[in-house]
Nucleic acid binder design. Sequence first.
DNA 1: CTTAAACGTGCAGAAACATGCACAACTCGG
DNA 2: CCGAGTTGTGCATGTTTCTGCACGTTTAAG
Lengths: 253, 253
Amino acid sequence: MLAAERHAVLLDRLARDGKIIAKEIALELGLSDDSVRRDLRELAAAGLCQRVYGGALPVSPALVQYADRARVQPASKDRVAARAAQLILPGSTVILDGGTTTLAVVAALPADLACTVITHSPTIAAALVPNDRVEVFLLGGRLFKHSAVTCGAAAVEAAQAVSADLFLLGVTGVHGTHGLTTGDVEEAAMKRALAGRAADTYVLASLEKIGVASPYRVLPLAEIAGIVTDAPDDDPTVLGLRDAGVSILQAQG
Amino acid sequence: MLAAERHAVLLDRLARDGKIIAKEIALELGLSDDSVRRDLRELAAAGLCQRVYGGALPVSPALVQYADRARVQPASKDRVAARAAQLILPGSTVILDGGTTTLAVVAALPADLACTVITHSPTIAAALVPNDRVEVFLLGGRLFKHSAVTCGAAAVEAAQAVSADLFLLGVTGVHGTHGLTTGDVEEAAMKRALAGRAADTYVLASLEKIGVASPYRVLPLAEIAGIVTDAPDDDPTVLGLRDAGVSILQAQG
DNA sequence: CTTAAACGTGCAGAAACATGCACAACTCGG
DNA sequence: CCGAGTTGTGCATGTTTCTGCACGTTTAAG
């Protein structure tokens, strides 16, 4: 088992349970107690957990809640994320949007994948710390509390300085006539700016987003390269996308 | 069951019920009476509860409702953080360095404090999301995995665009002749850049950092406004700081 | 004043810990 | 393809820390 892989498991467990007991994890993963302790020591040194006698605790109680929220709807979102993760080729540069779906993409990445990730989400950045071979570039700017990503003029300007092969975009609505939409005007602008910096933009949209429109337009459907979804093939919105020349990536088993 | 976990349960119970009966809790958690008594003694020593015959009471009746904010075991680091948090005035703009000590500062902030925080640590940024009245500006750049902060040329450049009243700086060493030091050259450069953007720089240094030197110089002692520490007044390094015109903020009770 | 419960302390076994070391797997020049 | 160097893992060692028990003391209630 790779070190980075172990680190990811430990952090994941910490977020889920709110604590880690070294002995238990060691037994469960078939590792020596020493390795687990060593890992916890490293994670604590990097500020990703708090070491206590017998195990470890989250560095801040607030971070547990967010991780919990990320797993409210595992099945559909994880399937989409797993399919999207396959789009990230070794050595490529990818822009990752904020949100729970793209966070699931990080979790679905192979532990030894080497690539460059550009993101405006501190949560995504923190989640990538254990992936040793992933270079992370964080776009600065004003932090929007609502979705915990940077937006606004400074963030858009920072985005102009980067270029990528791929942009994995999360939205709250994919609609036949309204296109791709989201709930905040600043977020919409930021997503649009990011789309302009990548050769290809793929939208991640699990079933419940299809056929839905939110207040603010991000992009028209015609400007994206493809969509990753678990919606059925005969869904009218999906059919409309296909007609617009968007490639459909099915995220089923 | 971890010690820290027990402490959390005890404080939680104290906040909910307004009292703790040692015998009852011991039975309920399957612990010996001794362990519970020992824990209560420690919490009382830390000022988180008031020890009485048969159990414990809240330190002040007013705290019962939101006592869950209280942190377990205010160690050296937490005392320093609590004192440093007092430096952040309502309405001011403060730059927060990365690291566990500054993260503790975030935890020590009053929930209703309104201010602007500039940081290069995604962890700090994420931890501030619950603080509704705190405006957060994140400095972008390449993410350094070792300490989970952004560093490098892009981050330094981003720092040039901001100005603040105060910079709370974390280092790994405070030494009489070597000054303020840290373990990574890029981090040192970033900290130096941030210090240049604030009117006043205060160093946060708990006891174990005093008299220690790490490989890379951040700043000479003379260039900081003050230091927040729990080191004794008669420590030679502290005396040297005072001679250099640095104000010493004691982080004791 | 009496008594039983709660208390603090010292102690010993157990658990967790850090460190050094050896071995295996991998990397990188040659 | 090979060998030296590097890295990571697990084991053995001695150390530190925790926990429950025993015992004598203090406290509160009748």
